[in-house]
Design a protein around this nucleic acid. Structure first.
Lengths: 217, 217, 217, 217
DNA sequence: CATGAATGAGGGTTCATTCAT
DNA sequence: AATGAATGAACCCTCATTCAT
C-alpha cells in the first residue's frame, strides 16, 4: 500500500500521533522524562489523557516512540549526506554539515538524544532503547563505508574504516557541543576547518594532497 | 591536633558517609536517579532513612555529593597523569591510560557520570551540576597546557591547544566506550595504537618523527 | 444560562466539595488540625486521597476553605439578625439569640472556630486567617451600628458603639461557653435575662425605662 | 521539709527544669505546639534531647508542665489582687490591672494560654488540660467571692456573683485583646474607665454612688 | 470513541523517642 | 548521669493509569 493511500481516518490518526509527539518533545527536552507528567502533555497537546493512552500504552511507550521518531529524522538527514554521489571526502564533510544543522535547529532535542545515547539511559526500562543504538550503529557503518571507499580511492590512509567512523563521529559531536557551550572558542563555521586540520590532514594519504586545503563552504 | 588526625567519631562519620555513597552509587548506576528511592538506598546501605537525612539534606544532595566524589576521583587520577614530569606526548598517553583504567574499574560510575555530563542533566535541579562541569573544564585546560608545551617543544604542530584537548578527550572517550560495547572490535590495549595512527600522526610536527612509532606500552 | 443554574457536573462538584468539608469538619473539630491526616479524611469521606487534592491544593487549603465556609454561615446568621427592621435593642437580642442557636447546633464547629480566632492560630501559616478575622470585624461593626442607632434614638447611653459591640460580643460568648461547661449554672434561655440585668440595664439611657423589663422570649 | 531546704542537687535540677520550660515557652509561643520539635527545644535550651526526656516523659508532658507553670504564675498574680484587704470594688479593679500587666509583659504566652483555654485544646490529648481549667475555675470563684462581699456591703446590686465574675473576666479579656489588635481604639489605661462606664455603673447599687466616679489610677 | 474524574501506590521527608556509649 | 546518633512510623503529596460516562 503506497504511503499516500491511507484512509482519511488513518491520516487523521497519523496527524494526531505526531501532534502528541511534538508537544511531548518540547516538554521532555525542556524538563526531562521524569519531570514531565502525562497531565502536562495532555494540557500542552490539548488531548485528553485518555486519548494519549489510546495512542501509547504508557508514558514510556510515548517517550520511546518520540525518541525513535527523532532518531529517524536525525539519521535520515545524515544518511542522505553519506549516500550521495559525491566523492568520499565531500560526503564526510556533508555529513558533518548535516549534523551541524540538526544541532543548530534542534538543540534541545539533541541534548535529550545524547542524554539517552551517550551515558546510560534510565528513562526506558526495557532494553528497547537499543533500537536507537541500532540506528546509530547503522549510521556508523555508513560512515565507515564512505571511508572504505575513500581508502580504496587512495584519498585516506589505510586505516580501519570503522575506527575512522567512530573518530569523525565523536570529534564532530565534541566540536558541536563546544559551539553551544563555548561560542567564543568554537563556531559552527569553524568546525570543518578544525576537522581538516586535526583529523583529515592526519589521515590523508600522503600521495593525495588536496584534503582540507582549498575547500570552500 | 593536626588536620589529618580526625577524632574517632569523625572518622566513623566519614566511613558511614562513604558507605552511603557506595550503596547509592551502585543503585543509581544501575537504575538512574529517579528510579531509586531513599527507602531503597536505606535498605541497601543498612541505614535507617532518617540516618540518610542526617548525612544529606535530601535525595538530590546525596546524589550531588556522590557525583562530586566520583568526579573528584576521576579528575584526580587523570590530573596526576597530566602533571607529571614526563614529556608532553607521554603525558597525554598517560592521561589516556589513566582514563582507561577508570573505565575498566568503574564502568557503572562512568556510565552514570557521562549520562550526567554529556547530554542534559535533569537530575539536579539547582545549577550546581556546573560544579562537575567545572572540574571537567579544568581537566581540559590541563590537557591543553600539555599540548601547548608540546607545541613549544616542536613535538606537535602549531594548532590551538584547547582544540587538541577537546579532540583527544572525545576520541579517547569514544574508543573507551567502544571497548565496552564492541569488545570484538576495540580493546583497551589497542586504544593507544589507534590514537597514534588516527590522531597523533596527524598533529605531529613534520620535523619530529618519533610519534606513534616506537612506543611500547 | 442563569448563574444559579449550574450544570449537573458543577452541582455534583459542589456537592462533593461540601461532603469533603463536612467530613473534615467532624475530624478537625474532634482532634484538631495537626492530629488529622489526609489519609483519615479520605477514609471518612470515602474519597481517594488524590481526589481530595483535586478539590484542595493541600491540607492547609482544605482547612482554610472549611473555616471560611463555617465562618460565613456563622456571620450570615448573625448578620441577618442585626440587619432586620426591628428596633436596636431587639436586634441586639436577636443577634444573641442567633448566636445561641449556632452554639447549640454546631458546638464542635464553634469550639474549632474559637480555637482559631481567640488565641493564636498556628494552623494556617499564610496570613490568610485574617480573612476570618475580617469577617469578625465586619460583624462587630454591624453590632456597633445597631448601638449607634440605639444611642441616637435615646435607647442607650452615649457610649462608644464599638466598645459596646465588643462588650456584648464577649459577654454573650462567655455566657454561651458557660452553658456548655456549666449547664447547672447557665442555660441558653437564661442568657438574655442575664445580659439584661448585667449589661443592658447599665447602658440604658436613664430616660428610657423599658430595657430588660418586660421582654418576653 | 521547708521549701528552701532542697539539696544542692535538687536545686540544680529545679533550675534546669525551669530553664527548659523557659526555652520551650519562647518557641511554643512563637510557633505553636506542633511547629516546634524536641530537637529545636534541645538546641535553644542547650540541653541534649535525652536530657529533656529525663525531665519530661514526652513532648506533651513538657508542654503540659509549661502551661501549668504559666497558668500558676498568672493565677497567682491575679489571686493576690483579689485577696488583698482592700474594698471589693478596688480589688476587682486591681485584678483587672494585674491581668493588664500580664498581657503587656507576656503577650505571646497569653495568646498561647488563651488558645489553650478558650476554644478546644488539641495539643494535649489526655483530658489533663482540665488542670488548667480548674485553676481558671478557682480564679473565677475568687472573683465571685469579691462580688459577693461587695453585694453584702451594698456596693453592687444583688446579682449572681458568679455571673458577675464571668462577666468581668470576659469583658476585661476582650478589652485587653483589643488593646493588642486595635491600639488606636483601645489602650490599657482606658480599660478601667471603659469597665466603669459599661459594667460597674450598671451593676452598682443605686444607693451607692461613688463607683467609677472619682477613682484615680 | 473521546473524555477527564477518580484512584491509591509509592514517593520524599520529618521528628518523637530510644538506647548504647 | 548525660548525650545525641540512630531509628522508622507516619506524614503530605504526586502522578501514571483506569474506566464510567
Amino acid at each position: 500500500m503506497p504511503l499516500s493511500k491511507l484512509t482519511r481516518r488513518e491520516r487523521e490518526k497519523q496527524r494526531q500521533h505526531n501532534e502528541i509527539l511534538d508537544g511531548a518533545l518540547e516538554l521532555f527536552a525542556k524538563k526531562g522524562f521524569h519531570n514531565v507528567s502525562m497531565h502536562e502533555i495532555a494540557g500542552k497537546t490539548e488531548f485528553a489523557i485518555g486519548t494519549l493512552y489510546k495512542f501509547f500504552n504508557n508514558k514510556e511507550a510515548l517517550y520511546k516512540a518520540l525518541m525513535i521518531r527523532e532518531s529517524k529524522k536525525f539519521h535520515t538527514a545524515i544518511g542522505m549526506a553519506l549516500e550521495s554521489k559525491k566523492d568520499p571526502y565531500t560526503r564526510i564533510r556533508d555529513y558533518v554539515k548535516a549534523k551541524s544543522e540538526v544541532f543548530r535547529d534542534n538543540i534541545n532535542v539533541v541534548r535529550l538524544y545524547f542524554a539517552e545515547t551517550s551515558g546510560a539511559s534510565f528513562n526506558i526500562k526495557s532494553g528497547l532503547e537499543s533500537e536507537i543504538k541500532q540506528r546509530y550503529e547503522i549510521s556508523l557503518q555508513k560512515i565507515g563505508n564512505v571511508f572504505k571507499e575513500g581508502i580504496q580511492k587512495g584519498i585516506f590512509r589505510d586505516l580501519d574504516p570503522f575506527h575512522l567512523a567512530v573518530s569523525i563521529d565523536s570529534l564532530s559531536n565534541a566540536f558541536l557541543f563546544m559551539c553551544l557551550e563555548k561560542p567564543d572558542k568554537f563556531s559552527y563555521d569553524m568546525n570543518l576547518v578544525l576537522l581538516d586540520e586535526i583529523f583529515f590532514k592526519g589521515i590523508a594519504d600522503s600521495n593525495f594532497h588536496s584534503l582540507g586545503k582549498d575547500h570552500n563552504d
